[in-house]
Each structure stands twice: as structure tokens, then as C-alpha cells.
Simulated scan of single mutants.
Amino acid sequence: MLLNLLRTVFIVIGALLIYETTLPVRGESLLVDRLSEETKSVDPSERRGTENYILHFAGDGQLTSCTVSRSAYERIEAGDRLDVEYTPLLRQCVSIRRGAEAIVTASHWKTLSVVFGVLLIGLVIFRIKPG
């Protein structure tokens, strides 16, 4: 039962990743309301962990926040107006620009999505046998 559920989840996520690459990206001009950092640690006693840098947007846009790299985070300030392109289903930011300046450009996101989608579906087909 649990194995069949896992198979179904992998197939759905894999298909979703592949399907999203066929959809056009959406673009909006958004105002940065605030910036935040979030540290996730596997062991609470450790001071270091995975850091997420998040932009929060103000206004009536469909995208409310976006996770970026540290270098992009350091180049953006609250109050900046950014042109953001994102995927329609999973809302992943694939391009962030301030005027003509490219701050984030994820040029290989389609390739990576297809590869991970195919890997998940392939894992189900060739490795996870039904119970």
C-alpha cells in the first residue's frame, strides 16, 4: 500500500516537472517589500545549516515571494522594482532583472526539470516494484 502510494507520488511529481517545461513562463514587475534569511539545520545544536534567502513582494501580483542565491540577495534592497519571470505551476523564479541588469538567470531550468522528472518516473518503472 505504502509502496504504491510512493510510486504514484513519484509519477505525479515527475510528470508535473516535465509538463511545466511546456508552459510559458509568467512575468511581472514587482516591488520588493522585504528580504529575509532562513537557516535550516539538521541538528539544532549546530549553528550552521542550509540558508535560504527570500525576497517578499508587495502588491497585487500572483507571486508573493522568491528564493534566491546569496549573491542575488546581497544585490537587492527593499523598495527595488524588479521584473520577475517564474514558472506557472511551481512558481520557481527563473529570471530576475532590475531594468537592464540581470540579477538572476536560471538558463537551464527546463533541462533540469525534464531530467529530474524522467529520473523520478524511471525510478518507478525500473526500481520500485509494485507490492
Rank of each mutant, 00 (worst) to 15 (best):
T105H: 09
T105C: 00
D83L: 13
G79K: 02
L89Q: 10
L82G: 05
T64V: 08
G99W: 15
I96T: 12
R98Q: 15
V104A: 03
S71W: 00
G79W: 12
A106D: 07
A78S: 15
S71D: 11
S95Q: 13
A78F: 09
I76E: 09
V68N: 04
S107T: 07
D80S: 07
L63K: 01
S71E: 12
Q92L: 12
L63G: 02
T105V: 13
C66W: 06
T67P: 05
C66F: 06
I103Y: 11
V84E: 10
E74M: 10
S107W: 13
Y86N: 10
R98L: 08
L63V: 01
D80I: 05
R91M: 12
S65K: 11
E85T: 05
V84P: 10
T87R: 00
Y73G: 01
E74C: 01
I96G: 08
A100P: 00
V104Y: 03
V84A: 05
R70T: 01
Y73D: 06
E85W: 09
A78T: 08
C93R: 01
D80P: 08
L89P: 08
V84H: 08
S95I: 09
D83I: 11
S69P: 07
A100C: 01
V84L: 06
T64K: 14
I103Q: 07
R75S: 14
V68Q: 02
E101W: 08
A100N: 14
V94D: 01
L89W: 14
S65F: 14
R70C: 06
R98F: 11
R70M: 07
S65Q: 13
S71P: 00
G99N: 14
E74K: 10
I103W: 11
R75L: 11
P88A: 06
